[in-house]
Simulated assay, not measured.
Amino acid sequence: MLMSSQASRYAHQLLDARANTRLLPLLSSSEPLSVDDAYDIARRVLDIRVAQGEQPIGRKIGFTVHKTWSQYGVTDDVRIPIWAHIYDSTVRFAEDNHGKQCLAGALQPRIEPEIVFKLGQTPSPDATIDELAECIEWMAHGFEIVACPFANWEFTVADSIAAFGLHGTLIIGEPHVLSSATRHNLAQILAGASVSLSSSTDSTGTLRAAGFFNNEADSPQHALWHLHQLLKTQPQFAPLQAGEIITTGTWTDAYPIAAGQTWITAFSGVALPGLTVSFV
């Protein structure tokens, strides 16, 4: 287990690398780094960012169970979803589902199309998946811009947890308040949905990917439930609370992005508009 002073040192190194757009050696390259160690570093990161004036407003979930792990540079055998805080400084809303995002300072940025929930109620500690759905106030589509401070996007799962869960920025489209009927059928609705992801550098778009979930257990709602369960084992972090924004994992591979590109999504099977975001 990491000494408290070492966890704090790693937290400062990660934040410095982010601030100065600088790559770091893998934390796990100098000494063994467990998942528990990584969440201890994440706790130090949270404390430092709050002390600097940022406010946590929710969580990101990464590496949900449908991923093709080898395409994310994961070099160890751990296969678990992860989570990290998102902040008022890292979340944007796209007006009319169109946005512009500056990539200056982003380390090796990639784009991920996701489903975003906002909790309108605090879940009970033992909430089931269906009871968690009743706590969701709205659902939206979002782009998470992930960033990696490690060369070639290669890391262990523990490294990625410590490095802010690879979270850079979350761009959220128009929120849709859920009806009671939609909450009741949310798992089935999302299991039948799909998204297309396209990019362009001029007036011609190129389809890059199509994403969907294989079954109801491999879904944003299940990812939310897993996070709720995991937090019960992590007393150093607050449980899920009303008002939190939760982004639930990518529907496609994470694609490298660059200034001058515009990325576009379209959904089928679910009443959500796509997003169009241009990067500068």
Score class of each variant (00 low, 15 high):
145 I>V: 13
105 G>F: 11
143 F>E: 05
134 E>Q: 15
135 C>Q: 07
150 F>Q: 06
127 A>L: 03
90 T>M: 07
104 A>N: 15
118 K>L: 08
142 G>F: 05
118 K>C: 12
150 F>W: 09
102 C>N: 15
101 Q>F: 13
147 A>C: 15
87 Y>K: 02
97 N>I: 09
126 D>P: 00
127 A>E: 02
91 V>E: 02
103 L>Y: 13
130 D>C: 10
111 I>Y: 04
121 Q>K: 15
134 E>M: 14
127 A>P: 03
122 T>W: 03
116 V>Y: 02
89 S>Y: 02
99 G>M: 07
131 E>P: 00
102 C>Y: 13
125 P>V: 12
145 I>G: 00
149 P>H: 00
95 E>G: 09
146 V>E: 06
104 A>I: 15
93 F>V: 14
150 F>A: 01
131 E>I: 03
141 H>P: 09
148 C>M: 10
86 I>G: 06
115 I>H: 00
101 Q>E: 14
149 P>R: 06
84 A>F: 10
114 E>P: 07
139 M>C: 04
131 E>D: 05
140 A>P: 00
122 T>P: 01
118 K>R: 15
102 C>H: 14
129 I>Q: 14
97 N>S: 10
98 H>W: 13
147 A>W: 10
103 L>K: 11
110 R>P: 03
88 D>G: 10
112 E>V: 11
94 A>D: 03
119 L>N: 06
103 L>F: 11
110 R>M: 10
